[in-house]
Nucleic acid binder design. Structure first.
Length: 568
RNA sequence: GCCCUUGUAGUUCAAUGGAUAGAACGAGGCUCUUCUAAGGCCUUGAUGUAGGUUCGAUUCCUACCAAGGGCACCA
């Protein structure tokens, strides 16, 4: 529709003898008082041709009305010189029909047709706890994966996990010192115990000389696999923590296609780095480094192989990136991490671009703010982390508490608490733009009312409830189409535009904001309209509208990685 | 010191350079003999500071202030 209006405006400008290039826009006004679409063309134009903007707007309006699109019922000039378009009843009725035809495909576009996109997210480390930061990355990455899918691309989900390095040595030291967990414990409890051992080992590393020595020793032995006992603990601990992560992914609704491990990437990256000395990397003080500032004053120097000859994270990242392109050759490779890695990633990507100029525009790094505690930065080294499990459990417990009186079976109660608990958590992460830090406070951060995931689900459930009940409702009259147009209809058709925007900017929060607006409009409609009633002349159309809303909400929640329960 | 990100109601967040800056929570009032009240309706209240560009700035530019992050062998 927008394109058609733009096209017509261009024709009108020509007819009015305005031939200059005018950079105008057609948008949805903030308030429906000002129509469904609005253009600033007269204001942009006015100065160029030396005319009063309102006067010019009137001229354009008259010219537009000569050959008005059938979907437009009214054109008005308002404010400083805006031209506002009001869509007709036919347009809205037709758009509801279209939604019902497209069903689960409603909202998809073809921007990325035939393209392949790899999205890397979550990145927890074996032997360390899965904390809120990982939950953030997962929610964002999963949502972006789905948005990309809706844009027509084949999406490949990838996870990258640090299975070597000092953190593993610290955990193994802790396990040796404090003993292995009871093997009868469930996997997540064993994983939690390993996380605690890591934290204790980490503390001792900083405070106890002997512990530090021993941990460094263990670290070497992990690399060269020379110690049977350590190998055994390593294999066991790696499996336990990875299994525990897998349980969380299942709950969160993520299925990865690829798992990359730092241990594998180190070898690959090291070879590449060494091959490119001194062309790109240089030796300095016994280490191999990259002088980012040589290529861009905003970049800095980073170490790729340290003076002990061990590859750093930078080198592993090179191995990882090039492995991705070698294995899948994606058109776009997206990586989602916390913002603390933003500057580092720019340097690494510059180094990669120098070796492979064709990849420069295909690597994208999305950063989100850090989850902080009121007391300061969260650190798994210090042990003051909030684990993913505990947060999910708390969230699900709140839901369980709310439905305790309801007549659901125990199985239903568990299912609902999982679906709604996850939704509350995911929505709280996805509702805001990615830039700023989030100060974590369960009471404030995870909401179940108002602007929240459960609010959206609840609204969908109400709609579903009407649709279910309508199946046994006998009344067959009510075929009229209402003259009046509800806000619900005015918001509904914009869904596909919101998804496009979300993809263009790689920002899921536009969808969250939109769905809340949509749900609010539905709830107002719901409160004002008794749909299943003999009195309702518009029942057939109202049911279609409810169905279209339900479909849109379901598709939208899917894009946020949130399930829609049947009841709650 | 240099670079990056972020400053919006009491609080948590919105607003491709547009119109009267939107929500939610909180506080106060109203609303279930009605399709799920996790709802609806009403009231309350905000752009860090100072300049600049523009017909028009929360948005772009400059400086400053504040918070977080990065800047050589952690990830």
């Amino acid at each position: 529709m927008k394109e058609q209006i733009e096209k017509q405006i261009k024709e009108v400008l020509k007819n009015l003898g305005i031939n200059e290039e005018i950079n105008f826009s057609v948008e949805h006004p903030e308030s429906f008082v000002n129509g469904d679409y609005s253009t600033n063309v007269a204001m942009v134009c006015a100065k160029k041709i030396g005319k009063n903007p309102r006067e010019l707007a009137e001229n354009i309006k008259l010219e537009l009305e000569k050959n008005i699109l059938k979907e437009i019922s009214k054109v008005e000039v308002a404010g400083a010189g805006f031209i506002n378009f009001y869509l007709s009843r036919e347009f809205f009725t037709e758009s509801v029909k279209q939604i019902l035809e497209k069903k689960e495909n409603w909202g998809k576009n073809e921007i990325l047709n035939g393209k392949k996109v790899m999205v890397e997210y979550t990145q927890p480390n074996p032997f360390k706890p899965f904390h809120i930061g990982h939950l953030m990355s997962n929610a964002i990455g999963e949502s972006i994966s789905r948005v990309v899918e809706f844009s027509g691309a084949k999406t490949i989900r990838a996870n990258y996990q640090g299975d070597v390095g000092p953190h593993v040595a610290k955990a193994i030291y802790g396990l040796k010192k404090f003993g292995m967990p009871d093997s009868s414990l469930i996997v997540s409890a064993q994983a939690q115990y390993i996380g605690e051992c890591y934290s204790k080992g980490s503390n001792l590393y900083d405070t106890d000389e002997n512990a530090k020595k021993e941990i460094d020793e263990i670290n070497k032995k992990i690399y060269d696999k020379s110690d049977e006992e350590i190998n055994k603990i390593y294999d066991w601990g790696r499996k336990v923590t990875l299994d525990a992560f897998e349980e969380i992914y299942k709950l969160l609704g993520t299925k990865f296609d690829y798992y990359f491990f730092e241990s594998e990437m180190a070898v690959i990256g090291e070879k590449i780095v060494k091959e490119n000395v001194p062309k790109i990397f240089e030796e300095s003080d016994g280490a191999i480094i990259f002088h980012g500032e040589k290529y861009d004053p905003k970049l800095h120097t980073r170490v790729f192989v340290n003076s002990k000859g061990l590859p750093t994270y930078e080198t592993k990242e090179i191995g990882l990136t090039l492995t991705k392109f070698e294995k899948e050759n994606p058109d776009i490779s997206i990586v989602t991490t916390a913002i603390e890695q933003a500057e580092y990633m720019k340097v690494v990507q510059k180094a990669i671009s120098l070796m492979h100029p064709d990849l420069e525009s295909r690597m994208k790094h999305i950063t989100h703010g850090m989850m902080r505690l009121a007391t300061g930065k969260m650190s798994s080294r210090k042990g003051n982390v909030i684990t993913g499990e505990s947060l999910l459990r708390d969230s699900m417990d709140v839901v369980l508490e709310k439905i305790t009186e309801r007549d659901f079976s125990d199985i239903e109660k568990r299912e609902i608490s999982e679906i709604v608990g996850v939704a509350a958590l995911k929505y709280s992460i996805l509702k805001s733009s990615l830039g700023s830090d989030i100060v974590y406070d369960f009471e404030k951060s995870i909401s179940f009312e108002g602007d929240s995931g459960p609010y959206l689900q609840y609204t969908a459930v109400r709609a579903n409830s009407i649709l279910e009940k309508s199946k046994v409702f006998n009344q067959k009259n009510g075929n009229d189409i209402p003259v009046e147009i509800t806000n619900l209809e005015k918001i509904l058709y914009q869904f596909s535009e919101v998804i496009e925007l979300s993809y263009q900017k790689l920002e899921p929060h536009h969808i969250a904001t939109y769905l809340t607006l949509l749900a609010s409009a539905f709830n107002t409609f719901y409160a004002n309209t008794k749909i299943l009633s003999d009195e309702n002349k518009y029942m057939v159309y109202h049911l279609e509208l409810v169905n279209a809303f339900y479909q849109t909400m379901k598709n939208g929640l899917y894009l946020l990685g949130i399930e829609t329960p049947k009841r709650m």
